[in-house]
Design a protein around this nucleic acid. Sequence first.
DNA 1: CTGACAACCTGACAGC
DNA 2: TGCTGTCAGGTTGTCA
Length: 291
Amino acid sequence: MPELPEVETVRLGLERSVTGKVVTGVRILDPRAVRRHDGGPQDFTGAVTGRLLGNPRRRGKYLWVPLGGVDPMSSAGDALLCHLGMSGQFRIDDAGTPLLRHTRVVLDLDDGRELRFLDQRLFGGMQVSRGGALLPAEISHIGPDPFDAGFDAVVASRRLRARRSTLKRALLDQSLVSGIGNIYADETLWRARRHPETPTSRLRAVEAAGIYETAREVMAEAIDQGGTSFDRLYVRVNGETGYFGRSLDVYGREGAACRRCGAGIVRMAFMNRSSYLCPRCQRWPRGVPRL
DNA sequence: CTGACAACCTGACAGC
DNA sequence: TGCTGTCAGGTTGTCA
């Protein structure tokens, strides 16, 4: 599911509902949801129980909640680090409400509600990051996202142009700039009128920076609409779907008319998944041999 | 460094 | 009613 706008929508929901609450209990229904936690499910439970939940933070598609309270001397600065993978979601429900299918972990809160982690495919998960409240070491390899206070368009542009790769591949590379996934890469490329196979080295500095500016714009609009929902696999913490799906210009619109020029949107295979683009607005880069 | 690919998982859907 | 193959918002590790 989730790319930056969806994760940010979830973060906003958590900010309103769990900040300042204390975890009174942890129930791990499927240990695979915490398999990345060092020490296993038992240790995870011990590290989270009794902790005060801070203000949720995000970088790219990663989300973390600073953990306070209990024993500040030994546990100060820890964080509950989460990734939603392809199908993860958080829900806030009143205690005792029936659990939905695919519920993997339940955190009991001191306000009579529960923070529930659901994940159909289990590509996502949670772990406690020791000392990770500011920025978990586990995600130090992830580059800043376009909304990050530390995001530098000049640096990003330089790194993008230094790549000996193609544009969509580079946009999906989380170590360069994080948060962009398959949907927003395609939407960004359409808006910037660039073909996915454009060699990165061909971009001028201003053009490269412009690509990230476009990505930021597209994702900001998506956040305003609560992200993109195709089905019930992505919902907000209150169960509502996002509305950006109806604003998508190319993703999933194979055969439909380009909103700019009317040409038929095409789908092409790309890295074991799909790319959608307008064959008229997004010309194959000149001089690049076609496959 | 770059790319190709398998692995990690479940479920919906098309076609036979 | 099966069964098989395909596809799906992601990340990581291995091998060339």
